[in-house]
Amino acid sequence: MNLTDQLKDQMKVAMRAKDKVRLGTIRMALAAIKQIEVDTRETLTDEQAIAVLTKMVKQRRDSISQYEAANRPELAQAEAEEVKVIETFLPKPLTDDEIAAIIDATIEQVGAASMADMGKVMGALKSKVQGRADMGAIGTLIRAKLK
């Protein structure tokens, strides 16, 4: 079953359970996926759908930090609940050791030797860790290894 079908099934479950937060979040995710499908006129693969969900999580985390800075904990809490729902559909996050191993293997695979090769490494890594790790943090780790 692909990710979009899982979202649709869980939407039905949330409707039956009258879980408004989960239902609203799943509907938002499906709408974001559908919007991209309409814009590109093609059905998204699971990897592309994961990228959409990852972007949604990142946006909500940014919103949480802004709401907390503005002393609006109720809005930050609502965003945090949405993040929890979206993360249930994302792949299991990688551990720090797994990330380090993937980075080392990718650096060796592309033959990166300096910061000039950072783009090659990031490009090769993106498909391997999409939705399973924060690309910003991975970029920092790569910089440290390519000095």
Rank of each mutant, 00 (worst) to 15 (best):
K55P: 00
A112E: 10
I102Q: 04
V85H: 14
I142Y: 03
K126Y: 08
V129Y: 06
D9W: 10
E79T: 04
E82C: 13
L44T: 08
K34T: 14
Q10M: 02
G111L: 08
I26D: 04
V21L: 05
E79K: 11
D62Y: 04
G131H: 12
K84D: 11
R143I: 04
Q77Y: 12
D19K: 15
D9V: 02
M28V: 01
L94A: 05
R27P: 04
M15R: 12
Q109G: 02
K92V: 12
L30E: 14
L23G: 10
V129W: 07
R132H: 08
I107H: 01
D134N: 15
L7A: 10
I86S: 08
A105V: 01
V38D: 07
L3R: 00
D19H: 09
L7I: 13
K55R: 14
D134E: 13
K20S: 12
R61V: 09
T40Y: 10
K8G: 09
A105L: 00
A78S: 15
G111K: 01
V129N: 07
E68D: 15
T95N: 02
Q10A: 08
Y67I: 01
M56A: 13
N2D: 14
G119S: 05
L146W: 08
R72K: 10
F89M: 05
V57N: 05
S127F: 01
A112Y: 06
Y67W: 14
K92L: 08
Q6A: 02
D117E: 12
G123F: 03
G123N: 12
M115F: 06
A144K: 12
Q6N: 09
E87F: 15
R16T: 11
G136S: 13
E79P: 00
A17D: 15
D117T: 09
L75W: 07
V83H: 06
A105E: 10
R60H: 15
K58S: 09
K128G: 02
T40L: 11
F89N: 03
M122P: 00
I103V: 08
T40P: 00
A17H: 13
I36Y: 13
K120N: 11
G139P: 02
T95Q: 01
A14W: 07
K147P: 14
A80Y: 07
V21A: 01
I86N: 07
T43W: 08
M118R: 03
A80W: 10
D97G: 01
E68H: 09
P91W: 02
Q77M: 15
Q59W: 01
M122D: 08
